[in-house]
Amino acid sequence: MPVDSSLVGRAYPPTRPYPVSEERLRAFAEASGGSWEGGPAPATFPIVLAFDAMNDFLEAEQVELRRIVHGEQRFTYARPVVAGDVLTATLTVATLRQIGGNDIIGTSSDISDADGALVCTATATLVHRGEA
């Protein structure tokens, strides 16, 4: 079922606050074969927040995660994520088009700290694969 085109411009509620612990950063770094010994988080760590926001969006719109393939991802950082941050992500549907039976969904998630200051903007293109 195609995603409703009236969703463009809709903002979803902020994700549940996510406390960034040292353990989380270490586990994330080690999961891509690296290490984390303190300091800035790995650059792609904000995807954890963006992914939470995407899951909330998919659930709200009753889209199956297994039908989603990641098409594009961009991060623009106001500052690095560090241990001790408590982050939330707010997702907005930026664009939506249909190509060859697939929905191409453009999203933008603002990731903010406990003071409400922007830490990172994560924009993603999600390809929602239509039923074969």
């Binding site: 792609t44 991060f75 623009t76 950082y77």
Partner: peptide
């Protein structure tokens, strides 16, 4: 370990 300001790609 320089500070990353932007990172992006298509898959």
């Amino acid at each position: 370990g320089a500070e990353v300001v932007e990172l992006g790609c298509k898959f």
